[in-house]
């Protein structure tokens, strides 16, 4: 037990990996939207929160099967993605980036307050207790394993969508040069809308997995919003593979740091690493130099 490498360190490593899955899934949608629409949805975690509420009501209260509830939540947050783009982003697409940031920031407070108004401040959970997975001395979180698996599948699916479909190709083309594609007859508004819907749906997917592990309340986004944003920036805003890598690096630093020192030091180490990366590569790990 006094050796540096012990079974608990292995557990911390695995925990970090699985937590990375959760963070990677969260960063996927945010990165996609930024990569294409070039607007940062500061309120992304709040869209996830609405997805979590949807599952809570559909499964926890109206007793729909969890998978169906999750599917409906994904459709719901997809629709929300559409609305956010149509009502908030679209009118300010040409404005200065700071205005766009302020608008989505304002939307964050609006969504938090709106959720408080609709559902109150109660912490709610679906009361689902998943089985415990044990392998010798090691224990795994079922929900996290699921999140990890789905994050990997989600990443692969998005990759295939972007490389193998016409719409995916259009999305990539727009993200490379938005002006020229419009001249070539691509309807950029449609591409933006599709991207926002896909991004919103990914928030719903993340919500389906988070709701298995976390209580839902109007401020649940505060626990995830900042770290998701940091991951996206560290990976290279708009770069999904970069975000994926950054998610796992940060989660391991948090987990191992928190294992060797106090939990909070894990976060300190993660943010110090973030600052260092920003100094060395301001565009992020895989970001393109602008």
């Amino acid at each position: 037990m006094d050796t540096i490498f012990d079974i608990y360190l292995l557990e911390a490593l695995i925990n970090g990996l699985l937590f990375g899955g959760v963070l990677a899934l969260l960063s996927l949608g945010l990165n996609l939207i930024f990569g294409v629409v070039d607007v940062v949805w500061i309120c992304y975690a709040e869209v996830v929160m609405f997805g979590m509420y949807a599952i809570f009501w559909l499964h926890g209260v109206y007793d729909l099967p969890i998978v169906l509830a999750a599917l409906l939540a994904i459709i719901g947050t997809g629709a929300m993605g559409f609305l956010v783009h149509f009502l908030v982003i679209s009118p300010i697409l040409g404005s200065a980036p700071i205005n766009q940031l302020l608008a989505t920031g304002g939307l964050l407070f609006f969504l938090q307050s709106f959720a408080t108004l609709l559902w109150g401040i109660e912490f709610r959970n679906i009361g689902l207790r998943l089985p415990v997975l044990q392998w010798g001395e090691l224990f795994f979180s079922y929900a996290r394993l699921l999140a990890f698996g789905i994050a990997v599948i989600g990443m692969a699916a998005i990759y295939l969508f972007l490389t193998r479909t016409y719409m995916g190709t259009a999305i990539r083309a727009i993200s490379q040069d938005r002006e020229i594609m419009t001249l070539m007859g691509v309807d950029s508004r449609k591409v933006y809308l599709v991207t926002s819907v896909v991004g919103g749906s990914l928030a719903g997917l993340a919500a389906s997995l988070l709701v298995l592990q976390y209580d839902v309340h109007p401020f649940v986004g505060l626990s995830f919003g900042p770290i998701t944003f940091v991951i996206c920036v560290m990976g290279g805003l708009g770069n999904m593979v970069g975000g994926f890598i950054a998610a796992f690096i940060l989660s391991e630093v948090i987990s191992i740091g928190g294992f060797y020192a106090e939990l909070e030091w894990g976060y300190v180490a993660a943010f110090v690493l973030f600052i260092i990366v920003m100094f060395i590569r301001p565009e992020g790990i895989l970001g393109k130099k602008s």
């Binding site: 925990n15 928190g258 106090e262 939990l263 909070e264």
Partner: peptide
């Protein structure tokens, strides 16, 4: 050990 009440993950604490 102390931790932030909004920490999204406490698994390292549990492992310790």
């Amino acid at each position: 050990e102390g931790y932030s009440a909004t920490a999204p993950d406490l698994s390292s604490l549990v492992t310790k």
